[in-house]
Simulated assay, not measured.
Amino acid sequence: MNEMTAIKTTIKDWETDQEVRWCPGCGDYAILKAVQRTLPEIGADPSKTVFVSGIGCSSRFPYYVESYGFHTIHGRAPAFATGIKLANPELDVWLVTGDGDGMSIGGNHTMHVIRRNVNTQILLFNNEIYGLTKGQYSPTSREGTPSPTTPLGSVDHPASPCAFALGSGGRFIARAYDVSKDLTTVLKAAHAHQGAAFVEIFQNCIVYNKDRFDDFTAKPVADATQLWVKHGEPMLYAKGTKGIALDVAALRLKVVDVVDGDWQAAGVLVHDQTNRAIAHMLVEMPFGAYPMALGVIYDDPRPTYESALLSQDAKARAGRTPDLAALLAKGQTWTVEG
């Protein structure tokens, strides 16, 4: 947990009196409920919890969680979250952003909150579109995506949020999707991690990018297209008939068939969430030829930014008595006589 005393609450304690206003059918509703279910289960204290957001549909989140909240400016939520955490390290800080807010104008800020390893939970809602500003293509939109700004289809190669987070030095990388029953499990793992925990959540935009993720979230195809990784367990999917193995010669992952449940004979990898190299391969597997990797992909903590900074500050203060007058008089001084 984030260094706080667990208290007993219910989901009702985390619901505000504000009308939740997203488009009917928006995936944000499911994510909100998942977070509100998670908070009582981790013993979170509303008086010590802060939700910080930037600009976008996802960034309405602080209005709907009964805790402290800060609806900031476009792309700058990580900077505010960093300041909040440094000012009061006891606060449990959740950062809510979107693929446009966090990966475009806020890409620089997202990189640095991850690189510094500020102890926050970073939830990036990825709907592969700019929903609030009426459907322009975003940094994560797939090639060929039609939009008001790409009427003939996007020719951009999309950014991968998880690959970006790993490349920024992230120590916790996870994926889930809005209506997944396992989203709360991922959120709990992110909260338990000491440091910047990055969670990409695929989110259905019902208006501008409807059913974008049906190719791996729709029930008829889910078993055959989703790889839920769990630490210490073999990387199996398609009801255990397929798995992920390492092609040593090519130094890349490959899909293998599993016969009669003998995954060891097929060479299926056992997931090690501390293996950074395999984590990179998992998040960059091209979907279609491979399944979509979901769950906690990488989790290998290191000391947090605020712990290092506050320790440095404590050492600098040791044995010194605060004296503002002496500080102001230090160095060159002069007297102006009338």
Rank of each mutant, 00 (worst) to 15 (best):
S307N: 05
D28I: 02
M4W: 14
E233P: 07
D101P: 02
T321D: 09
Q194S: 12
A190I: 13
G240Q: 14
P78Q: 02
M285R: 08
K188R: 13
G153A: 15
A30I: 05
L86D: 00
H191Y: 06
V268C: 10
V336G: 03
R276Y: 12
H231R: 04
V93F: 01
G319K: 07
G69I: 07
Y64D: 11
G170K: 03
L183V: 08
V283A: 15
L152N: 13
V65Q: 09
V229K: 05
V256R: 03
K134E: 14
V221S: 07
H271S: 00
A77D: 01
G153W: 13
E284I: 11
K8P: 10
K48F: 12
L328I: 00
G69M: 03
V52M: 12
G232E: 10
G319F: 06
L132H: 02
T185R: 09
I55S: 15
T49I: 07
I278K: 02
N127D: 05
R21I: 03
H280Q: 13
P139H: 13
Y29A: 05
F172V: 08
C23S: 11
V50E: 10
R142K: 13
I73E: 02
V93A: 04
A325D: 13
A224I: 09
Q332A: 00
H231A: 08
L246M: 13
K181Y: 05
Q194D: 10
Q264L: 09
S180V: 03
A77I: 01
V221L: 11
I55M: 13
W94V: 00
V179S: 15
G69V: 09
V270G: 04
A245I: 06
V52K: 07
N204R: 03
L309I: 08
L123A: 11
G169F: 11
P161E: 06
L187F: 14
A87Y: 01
V93R: 02
W94K: 05
G232H: 12
L310T: 10
R21N: 01
W14T: 06
G25T: 02
S58K: 15
S311N: 12
P46D: 12
A279Y: 06
L246D: 07
D260Q: 04
V199A: 04
T38F: 06
Q36Y: 01
S67D: 00
Q194G: 00
L246Y: 04
F216S: 08
D299S: 15
T9A: 02
R320V: 09
E15S: 05
M235F: 10
L327K: 13
M292T: 14
F80N: 09
E200R: 11
V248C: 00
N275Q: 04
E233D: 14
V50G: 03
A314K: 04
D260P: 00
H71C: 09
V50N: 08
L132F: 02
I31E: 06
E41L: 15
A279L: 04
C162D: 09
L32C: 11
L253I: 02
M4T: 08
P89K: 01
G98L: 05
K315V: 07
M285K: 00
T241K: 15
A238S: 10
Q312D: 14
E128Q: 15
